[in-house]
Design a protein around this nucleic acid. Structure first.
Lengths: 210, 210
DNA sequence: ATTTTTCTGTTGTAATTGCAACAAATGATA
DNA sequence: TATCATTTGTTGCAATTACAACAGAAAAAT
């Protein structure tokens, strides 16, 4: 599996640039890409964070997906005809690599090391994207807010090998990720505290399961 | 993009078997694979249909995912630590190819045509898997049953270029796919009929939008 | 340092939904 | 053909949830 270290290496090596990969830095708020055209382009987030945003017919903003380091994104992964406009916007200063999805089979003309590492690791990046999507479906499939929260906490707990962990999102974003009303989620969090199932201080959650 | 025709060709050519791909037929009800071990194995459904089933701690059966022709599946795409047991079960007579995900970069020793076609097409099969997952997330993110149904119908309508289309699922499975209570969904379908937003006869839906 | 924006926290209320339970229709199997 | 299993369709009711609206805290921008 690719790790942050490898990605950093990618970026370093990129100075001796691979002809088939572009790289660019974005400031907070800048549009990284849109899902309006139909290209075979893949975006790989080398550093920072990027949101996939929808503006619906009423102009309401809605976070569809949230990308962090090593995430791959782009309209090629989102062949869904929503009649809304989808944008990827940098949440903070971010570095993004752009290349064609069809880089897969092909060898680089220069036979460059960077290109080779990229094609070797892309399959794993895609695997982890698929797992992330499946995880979200798993959570969204739960019927109640309580179940959604507890499933999510349980997964964070397993990831960190601890009953205590920091939420990687703000509570507002968490409600968005679980696709529930924020105030209803806040209420449920309070009930979970009252029932002594969790403890919560700021964005640190502790599971109190016996 | 790969089509059914290409897949059929794959299967035909498979007679001169590629050393890195196994193929097997399953009868209805047979276990195709389980998500208990951690292998790099990919399953590709050449024909038939397969369900990914969960049995929770109470023994309740739950359809997590439903695969049809050309779908790729296997635990490699599902790195989620649910404490449940996940099985893939053939819904009908089905043909499945098995191979390693790491087939990607590697060339076949025999340099066989089949292997080459497979590695060329696998990236596209994976793309369409990702789009399917994103589509489901899109639907599950809707807040009401009505919105879920209408979004789903609208996508089917676009796919078929028609206001009338057949549901690819039974209503029971549709409720499962949208992760809502079946009886609540039935009620909402009736309300949609009463409000003259849809017509429904058996599993044919007609959108009555002006 | 002050203003503005975003985030957290809370609550009442109405609407939606899950659940349980049932009957009829359809499909599968022996 | 008879029997069993699955699917469709329906309803009452209790529980959950979305929505709206607000205030205070924290963070970001000027």
């Amino acid at each position: 599996m690719i790790d942050s270290f490898s990605i950093s290496n990618f970026i370093e090596n990129l100075s001796k640039s691979c002809s088939q990969v572009q790289s660019r830095e974005f400031e907070k708020g800048e549009i990284v890409t849109t899902y309006l055209v139909n290209r075979r382009q893949v975006c790989l987030l080398a550093s920072g964070s990027v949101d996939l945003i929808r503006y619906d017919f009423k102009g309401n903003k809605d976070i569809v997906e949230h990308f962090t380091q090593n995430a791959v994104f782009g309209e090629i992964f989102y062949q869904i005809n929503t009649n809304n406009e989808l944008f990827c916007i940098a949440r903070e200063k971010s570095k993004v690599l752009f290349f064609s999805y069809d880089i897969f089979g092909k060898k680089c003309k220069n036979n460059c090391k960077f290109h080779q590492e990229l094609t070797e690791n892309l399959p794993n990046l895609i695997l982890s994207k698929i797992s992330d999507l499946n995880l979200r479906i798993e959570l969204l499939s739960k019927r109640t807010i309580r179940e959604k929260l507890l499933s999510y906490f349980s997964i964070l707990s397993e990831k960190t090998f601890s009953n205590s962990f920091l939420l990687p999102f703000s509570l507002t974003d968490l409600a968005d990720y679980l696709s529930v009303d924020r105030s209803a989620m806040m209420r449920e969090l309070k009930l979970l505290k009252d029932d002594q199932i969790i403890k919560k201080t700021d964005n640190k959650i502790t599971l109190l399961l016996k």
